[in-house]
Design a protein around this nucleic acid. Sequence first.
RNA 1: GAGGAGAUGCCGGAGUGGUCAAACGGGGCAGACUCAAAAUCUGCUGGCUUAUGCCUACGGGGGUUCGAAUCCUCCUCUCCUCACCA
Length: 921
Amino acid sequence: MVEINFFKIEKKWQDRWSKEKTFEVKEDSKKKKYYTLEMFPYPSGEGIHMGHTFNFTLVDILARFKRLSGLNVMYPVGYDSLGLPAENAAIKVGTHPKEYTDKSIPNFMKQQKALGLSYDWSRVISTADPEYYKWDQWVFLEMFKKSLAYQKTRAVNWCPSCKTVLANEQAQSGTCDRCETPVKIKHLKQWFFKITDYADELYENIDKLDWPEKTKAMQRNWIGKSHGTQIDFEINKKPWPIFTTRPDTIFGVTFMVISAQHEGLMSLVTKEQKKEVENFLNKLGSVSEKDLAEMDKLGAFTGSYAINPANKEKVPIYVGNFVIADYGSGMVMAVPAHDQRDFEFAKKYKIKIKPVVLKEHNESYSYVMGINEKDIAKIGIKIIEKTEEGFFKIKIPFGKLEEYKSFIRKNLQPGFWNEFSTPKGFYFIFKHKNKKLEEFELNEKTNDLIDNYGMTFNNEKPKKNPENVYSWLAENDFYKELLIHTDTGTLISSGKFNGLDNKEAINQITKEFGKKIVQFKLRDWGISRQRYWGTPIPIIHCEKCGTVPVPEKDLPVILPEKVKFGEGNPLETAKDWVNVSCPKCKGKAKRETDTMDTFVNSSWYFFRYCDTQNKKEIFDKNKVNYWCPIDTYIGGAEHSCMHLIYSRFYTKFLNDMGLLNFREPIKRLFHQGMINDEKGQKQSKSKGNVVEPLKLIQEYGSDTLRFFITSVAAPDKGFNWSTKGIQGSSKLIKRIINYFEESKEEKDSPEVLNKLNKTISNVESYYENFQYRKATIEIRELFDLIEKNPASKETKERFLQILNPICPHITEELWNRLGNKNLISTSEWPKAGKVTDKKSESNLDETVIRDINYFLEKTPTKPKKIYLYAMHFEIKKINKEKISKKVGLPIDVFAVNDKNKYDPQGKAGKAKPGKPSIFLE
RNA sequence: GAGGAGAUGCCGGAGUGGUCAAACGGGGCAGACUCAAAAUCUGCUGGCUUAUGCCUACGGGGGUUCGAAUCCUCCUCUCCUCACCA
């Protein structure tokens, strides 16, 4: 076998593609376009890792396949170079982020080229380029004009020692990740984009996207549209709107909870309660936000009350840590009987619990004393158990309610009562000492029950409230399940709504006390970062004129290079840059020193790819409308929410500006899987488990790496890296090259032709649908066949074309060696010919005759008759007479699913397609 | 708590009603070549056994069907994402 110099071959073709601008494209109205790209990478100094390799290769295969299929394919590349990682990395190494980025990008490019990616290199963009972020600033100003960019105060993580605002990921443990000082919460004025204006469209359009269900579900969850009711509660004589999805439980409200972060909180706190509330708030400050979900419900009484509009009851208002300030109105009506959180809170602070929904149930349980077991068995009621106190626990099916009632009337001992649930409430039967009976539904006569019969609950006579009876009932496990729950059911203790199904009650109570509204979880997008390495926000703060936008002609506002790192916001140290004159009044003014979130940069970069050199406008409308929307976009699932929602938001905004003729940027989305180490752990430098693609390319060649990575990992599932198998791929690639060196040109064997055609059509759909792994398998099978059977030059060429998307270099080389002057990369994908199915042509009769003869040899006594059982779809193919003649015995043929067949030994079940079963009698 | 994806042989993973003891790869075993090794090639890789056979087997139970890895149903487990959203 010849030694192969992969490096030389790869370099040769990479140079040729570059020289001939093979992958550079222009708009062409006559050609169908295809726009595909991966989420552009953040260019780290460490170069590309396996995850990148996997991601890039997946997209490259698609791009190359689409190109072969005759489409005008744009596959661009760029760098998401602004951002915190670059800033941190630079500070760590002691260089400037710009310098760091300027070094990292060429390194990335070099490695990407080594992989043989078919990028249109004329369209490279970098978000750190002022010519790029100029348009970030421009869009910001456009939003500012339309009040979609605005300022408001928001809490941030603040490290008192570094005097720096920390990103959430820098403050995860509740301490600063650099100096471990506990993080404080600080309120700062910050910039926001009003994405909530688009919340409904963002939500509703999800259905129309050809995206993974999972991603769509995540976006739905993130945007969180929920339908509910708004009801005004009166607080200090003023209405306070409350959002709820369970207005049916309004009679069960026993307290209110306002968010600890709510702006209006202190106005509700009375003098007497101030200390307690402040204590509570101080406790909260030290807890990091991350454990919110596991945290105990905590709170304090504010001293104020709210009036429940349904029953005019006065309920206490608490402040609580589990209520979100900017969802709804920041206060909730708490119904401890029918909400888990409210229940926990009520238990902790000993607030009363009032059940108002009786869960649906099919039977009741009761406890009775002093009855005769046989008597009760006569009416078909079972005794489940006997309690220590001498009660019988019995089960009463609702069908037997009436019989049970009359039984109790007869058998109840004077001075005792019996209670049980009915489908719509509870029923009580009480027998006076004088044997007089009293019976009633609990809802109606509870007070009578208490007053007239002297019933006591835990030796304590309750106040005249139905819910106290319910509380007492709820001490019984069975009744508790009916009363304390979050399920559907029938209303009780709810005035005129009693007996209503709770779904119906939602409608009626909404109509009576409130109105239907829609709430979103989605918040406005806070874009301010108190960081250096980001897009400067083009705003000037003037002492006189206030907030003044930078005039468009002054864009871009370029990030100053001379700044000090280490304390506070570096931009504030660039005094020359900060101090400017006001564009309006020319008076003293200062620049905004916040920079933009990097998600701003990545929200529209795919549009800029269409027109990277444009100095006059963000992009040429016509160019973008030709290429976009993106046909297939590939990237990590971690961007399911933020990046992809922000991009959708930008698209809608730019469409509203009249710059686009579509409202969704991405037609098809695909998430590649993760490449982890052998143990399934994430690869990271600190763990020392990083596999460097470049080394593998040097050792095996990039085609081998590309083939290996696609054959070993399903694109969407990823793979726990092991280099073991790469030898297998290497072998195959070498075998292929070797074969092309040595094989002769012959006439195709039928098997080869058949397999070729099958492979062409299968692989076509595999490439289309990201089933690359299957493609490598089928390619392998085809090659195995070609290697061992005569094949023509044309077949060999087709084989190379099929393989080309995965292994572009060697296929280019072998294509050339076969005498082709053109590039395989721009050749035309082969058309699949006819495929013949060998199996369907095999002769059933022959098989049957052979099988029968075999049996006849084995059987000592000669049978009288033969029964054949064949698949129902094969019956017609069997020639009964022919077989009968050959074997010399009469034959009956049955379909295997024939109900009337003669089959005493159940042989029919043994039949298989192509192989009828036989019974000899 | 909400949502999503899964469970197949030693391993990774195809397979979605019959041609399935289950593709393809990895690993393992045996053999060929070689003084030997690597590379390469060939065969085997559930059990009984060598039969056109039987048994066991696609997470577990139950069902539909002449026939189930595949369809239905219940259960168990695993992974991922979001999460006090009223």
